[in-house]
Design a protein around this nucleic acid. Structure first.
Lengths: 240, 240, 240, 240
DNA sequence: TATGAATGAGCCTTCATTCAT
DNA sequence: AATGAATGAAGGCTCATTCAT
């Protein structure tokens, strides 16, 4: 009890001093790193507890099972990431929606590509996408959906009054698709575009590109939507 | 490697002996399904050989190890996918570059989202991205790079003469990012956009959107590039 | 041991402090139920303390170890059962020895088959028989031997003066064997004789049977004993 | 395959040479010993495989799990015991039913108290009685019921025409109760009757006693049954 | 005195791989 | 060439016990 309090206080004073965190928290952080690096299946409890300086039985004691630990990691980092985002969620009002989009993309990319709770979450989400676990529903509700909603509002403003929902959805996914690709396909980007080094300057220029590209894309999509379906030009593929 | 070749040659020479020789091929196909469904780590060789109707020792006998089998799967399906793509590599010439982009995106998305060798490969690539193996370099060289090059040429044509390489690269990745998101994040899309059902009609309309969005984006990016860096508006993040 | 005594004395001195002191007793009772239901090995101290509303460390604190708790349970319930028996130890005197036997069997069976301290003990004894612990000697001395002695006296009276010890011992064990079978082999009885439901009426009729059967058996044995060994008819087994 | 055959033949030639049995059989026999000695829960698969000279994974390979091995042990020894019994099941006809009872008890006791498959089974059954597993139903059907039926027929003959079923059942259970007590309560017998040493001569005299006692008991019970319920003399216990 | 977090030995099981045939 | 029984390292989890407070 008392010790816990002291530890908590120390954690506030010197949050870099991980040594002083309690076992519960140390396990979550060590596990987060391991799950990000190796995935749920490949991460070994023995390695996690070693990294956390805890006993092999600590995982079951604190979280019931390896899966329970995973869920705790998801919940903790999800909450952290959302809390962090909400600080910068202050949007429109005076600024126009395009400035909001610029802000959204810049923040999103910076968080996504540097070592923050959101970075951790995105890595875990990437793993969930190819190997979904029971925690996937939780992730979408608590982590993905709020972010998507914010973007949706911005895009809706840009497109203008009474947009068909589908158009907005398509544009939102086009925006996030561009961003996430740089996170998800880091290794591929490194080969296809060796000059992109994921440094702060790189990320800044990337954000500029995605904003410009997306604004152009959104406006073009809205225009196309107005003029309605030109000609379907995909139907002839594969011989049908 | 070498043995595989021998087997393939023998298969051509004596097709009557198919039953035995097919074990090799049956293993590759069964393994491809299992690796796509469960990933390399979670797929069990017992399940693979059961699905292939082969003996438990067949994997090590034919491929040396589970990893050898995985490499064989990558190589086989990569070759299949490339062969299939080259059939539709119909490029410019008479058509304008924008029509080529339309064709590229349509074909890419259709292959990506339906059960073809490329679909198999994309699933495996998605797994490689979060859990790279020794086969990843091979995949990029043989599977990803050729497709990227084709797109690069198209985008280069659209942007116009002497484009800075970076602009083209950025635009290419923006295009593929949009496409791959629908493959990679199927489960998320299903929740964020429940009306999108991955049916042929859905895919066709999606392709239309991505083409329009991307053309708008490319042109806007090119324009922005010309007028050059307006103001950097991301640098103040984290400091306000 | 010593500490237990102190606690008991304190309980008498300051009954207001019962809540805390009762932990000791609550543990014994919870443990008795668990040991009866699941056996020493399968019963978990976590479950026992949970059932007793005590702390996980309480077992080791009060009894030194799980085994210490088990010994305490044996001792406590053994004393309880013996105390209870001595109330009905009403023996011969005016009544004849056959009436005493009837009384003994009736009481024995009723205690054995209903939820009394003796019932608890018998269940534990059954477990000790297949998995003896260090407490087994104690059980025989304190719990089994007194009861056996009482029966021995009765049977000795029935058989008559100067019986060979062996005859009496044989008959005693024949009597208790019949009784204990219904306790020990409850599950088997339930299948071989589904009409026997272990209700009060069933037990009463069972007692009648065992008394009649045993009296017939004792008299016959005594007669046979007098006429001495007829012919040995078992020796040829395995060789025919 | 071939080796298995050779081993099987060798097993017939020199059944004492356990070394030559195949792993499957060696595991069953080693497991039987361990389960008899320590019970299902306390027996460790590591010890079993060590005793069988097999690998730790052999249990799961051959029997799926520890429980599967247990079931195999039950089935094997149950079949062995029944097969052995059926050789001596040749009963009545010329001999009277009382001679049959004598034969039954002699055989039963000898098998029960010496190291035969039935001995093994009885030990396991004793454990099942205090700690039933899923195999208990199997045991009753395959092992206990056949033996009970044989005794039932004999007792029915002794009691005479049209006996109430209950009387026969009661007498049967009185007979087996006497016998099983010596097996089940070995340790108690050793203390209450130290002169009984479980040697062949002891067993022979015990059989004589149980036969005489039981015949006297059965006849007395039948007589009592005819004269019907004398007076219920148990109802006054415990104050009702 | 009493707590509950922490410990570590040990258990059953899984699984890719090997070996004798 | 192909089989399948056998291997052994390693993994997650259980549980009685201990220790600092």
């Amino acid at each position: 009890m008392f010790q816990t309090l002291i530890v908590a206080v120390l954690a506030m004073i010197s949050p870099s001093n991980e040594q002083e965190l309690d076992t519960h928290q140390r396990l979550i952080e060590a596990a987060a790193r391991m799950f990000v690096e190796q995935g749920f299946g490949s991460a070994k409890v023995r390695d996690i507890v070693a990294r956390a300086g805890a006993n092999i039985a600590a995982v079951n004691y604190h979280f019931g099972s390896k899966e329970g630990l995973y869920a705790a990691v998801i919940q903790y980092h999800s909450a952290q990431a959302i809390a962090e985002l909400s600080q910068h969620a202050g949007d429109d009002g005076v600024r126009g929606p395009e400035a909001c989009l610029r802000d959204y993309v810049c923040t999103f990319l910076q968080r996504l590509l540097t070592d923050t709770p959101q970075f951790t979450m995105s890595k875990l989400v990437a793993r969930e996408m190819v190997d979904p676990t029971a925690a996937f529903g939780l992730i979408i509700e608590k982590f993905i959906w709020p972010q998507y909603q914010a973007l949706h509002a911005i895009v809706r403003s840009i497109v203008g009054a009474k947009p068909s929902d589908e158009l907005v959805r398509r544009c939102c996914l086009s925006v996030v698709g561009q961003c996430l690709y740089y996170q998800f396909a880091r290794q591929v980007v490194a080969r296809l575009d060796p000059e992109f080094g994921y440094g702060p300057a790189d990320v800044e220029r990337l954000a500029e590109h995605i904003v410009a590209f997306s604004l152009g894309g959104i406006h073009q999509s809205a225009r196309t939507r107005t003029g309605d379906a030109q000609q379907s030009s995909c139907g002839d593929v594969d011989g049908r």
